[in-house]
């Protein structure tokens, strides 16, 4: 059943022309940003990419994550909850289904940036891209999805506003303060990132298992 949800999400992403154009715009923006302003930054290239990758992934995931709210608004969620599916299966299926395209976009941009800078991907960087990055994107999408389940429409709008501006503000501030010489992609940092994101994902999963259908349904109305 989970597989069906994951494929459905991916299929919907492919069909969503607005979403595809948003993803393409983000990708182009990031590459353009890299081409125009990257030379002005004195940050370590690997570190810069390490910060950009999750930001791109979260930005795409954030745009796709609106589907949690849309399904609530359109009454699809109510119908799905009458099927043998449980709320946690539904949440998990959506998180995986939305993480895949977000992660894929992020990886593609990272690879382009890496090739443009002529970097070689080392062991820690590879672990970061293969493990920490998808975990981070999934934990953010999962948390946003959970919040969209429990919040009312006005609160969701406020949440989206806060997330969007926080994301850009963080991106701006982080880029300015990136370390100059040493890379942040160390085995210790990758391990810490995996632990932290796993904890966020596990906590959100636990919260979803405790979530009642009534809470979700009443927030629709």
């Amino acid at each position: 059943m989970m597989e069906a949800i994951v494929w459905k999400e991916i299929r919907e992403t492919i069909r969503d022309r607005n979403m595809l154009s948003s993803i393409l715009s983000i990708s182009l923006l990031m590459i353009l940003l890299n081409l125009t302003s990257f030379k002005l930054l004195i940050a370590n290239t690997e570190t810069f990419i390490a910060y950009m990758a999750p930001c791109i992934g979260v930005l795409v995931g954030f745009s796709l994550g609106y589907r949690f709210t849309r399904e609530k608004m359109e009454g699809v969620l109510e119908t799905l909850l009458c099927t043998p599916l449980t709320l946690k299966e539904l949440w998990l299926g959506k998180v995986i289904g939305l993480t895949i395209p977000s992660y894929a976009t992020s990886v593609v941009i990272v690879l382009i940036l890496t090739l443009m800078r002529g970097l070689t991907i080392g062991g820690a960087m590879l672990a970061y891209i293969l493990l920490a990055l998808p975990m981070f994107i999934a934990s953010v999408i999962g948390l946003l999805g959970y919040l969209q389940y429990i919040l009312g429409m006005k609160q969701i709008q406020a949440l989206n506003f806060v997330v969007f501006f926080t994301l850009f503000a963080t991106l701006y501030m982080v880029i300015r303060r990136l370390p100059h010489e040493n890379t942040v992609i160390t085995w210790n940092n990758v391990g810490a990132a995996i632990t932290l994101t796993s904890a966020i994902l596990a906590t959100t999963y636990y919260l979803v298992t405790r979530l009642s259908k009534e809470k979700v349904i009443l927030e629709i109305s």
Partner: peptide, 13 residues
């Protein structure tokens, strides 16, 4: 089987 007030269908599929 249920048909509720809203159709519960995926518009993009």
């Amino acid at each position: 089987g249920v048909v509720l007030e809203s159709d519960g269908l995926f518009r993009r599929l």
